[in-house]
Design a protein around this nucleic acid. Structure first.
Lengths: 204, 204
DNA sequence: GCATAACTGGAGTGGCCTATCCAGATATTC
DNA sequence: GAATATCTGGATAGGCCACTCCAGTTATGC
């Protein structure tokens, strides 16, 4: 039987980690998290032997929300508005948490349930893309794999501006959305091969 | 009198640091650099007491090149082609070195000569911007302060793709340039206040 | 070729990191 | 309320970090 106080401690660790990741990013130290939780380092590491487990636990809600945002956008009647809403809201989600911004451009193979949500988002985004292209609104040479590219770009902006200029990502978003419109689109260089980009998102 | 072998050591440190920064980014440890240079840690730190001095020394060439690229673009007769060339070549310079990519979105107040080159680039870019806008090619609501925003975005892409998909930044660049065209430009959110963005680029 | 100023690298310090160990504390069960 | 299974946090180890100290080495000027 798991003891009641152990459950309480586990939850304190998760709460503390959520704050620490938001403040400091994903590389907040386990020591720091233990300190904030008012719990020993041993207790923290007993509950979450690998940092990735803690990350997956802390951000499972947000990851689900990520996939939900994509599905809600796909449910909108207007294909192009749906696509734009998806990009905007995902970027906004990224801006809401330094840690989650990094989660979205990372990969956590040790947490299958977590990655399943990401896969759900990708599948839906794929459909969203095709629908917007079929409607002639999204440029035909856009590929779903451009999304991680944009997430990386947005993460770069967010990590440097979120404290001093928290709205900077909105301007980036606007630039992106305009360049994704099918109207007057100019040719692009070749897209990034999916496999290779995914590889780059594997843990180091 | 500075001894000949001391000069030689200093140069070995600079060369080793250039490689280490390119491989590992700006946070390569001083220990690692000393090891690569085949020199004691004490010698390394005696030559460069602060990491920033070493960074400014290693990247002074590239920083000058950055400003030169901007000036060369400003010297081109066609304002819009000049502007596009500037953005493309600066992004390419960023892609050529993980460390320099970070330098371009950082700030090194302890190295005034270094920052003077950056200021030269900014001044020229400002003129380049106005000229391209006067020609009606660059959208009127673009502000020079959007450049650091794009540099941050590009740095984000580069840091995650340079190994596995080294051409990814080109696609980002193409998207950006299209959204900067004056033709069919849609309204944007407010630009990031200059002061605040600069502040965010100050060392932590 | 010697005296000396200039320079060297290794050893040591203190800090923070992950990770493990274990004697003691505590919730639970009966 | 005693027995026990569960859980705790401090101490500890080993690694890497920036940084300092100093006895010993080496280039240089005469």
């Amino acid at each position: 039987m798991t003891r009641a106080d152990a459950v309480r401690n586990r939850e304190r660790i998760i709460s503390a980690a959520a704050l620490a990741f938001a403040d400091l990013g994903l590389d907040a130290s386990m020591n720091e998290i233990a300190r904030r939780a008012g719990v020993g380092i041993a207790t923290t590491l007993r509950n979450f032997a690998h940092r990735d487990e803690l990350i997956a636990t802390v951000f499972s809600d947000r990851m689900r929300r990520y996939a939900d945002i994509t599905e809600a956008a796909a449910a909108r009647p207007d294909p192009w508005q749906g696509f734009q809403q998806c990009v905007t809201e995902v970027f906004e989600l990224q801006a809401s948490d330094r840690g989650f911004s990094q989660v979205l451009i990372g990969s956590f193979p040790a947490a299958p349930a977590f990655e399943a949500e990401r896969a759900r988002a990708y599948r839906t985004f794929d459909a969203l893309t095709r629908r917007a292209q079929a409607a002639g609104k999204l440029r035909a040479d856009f590929v779903p794999n451009d999304m991680p590219l944009m997430l990386m770009a947005n993460a770069g902006v967010i990590s440097h501006t979120i404290d001093q200029a928290p709205g900077a990502w909105r301007r980036l978003t606007a630039y992106f959305l305009q360049s994704l419109s099918a109207e007057h689109a100019q040719p692009l260089p070749a897209p990034v091969p999916t496999r290779r980009l995914y590889l780059s998102m594997t843990k180091t």
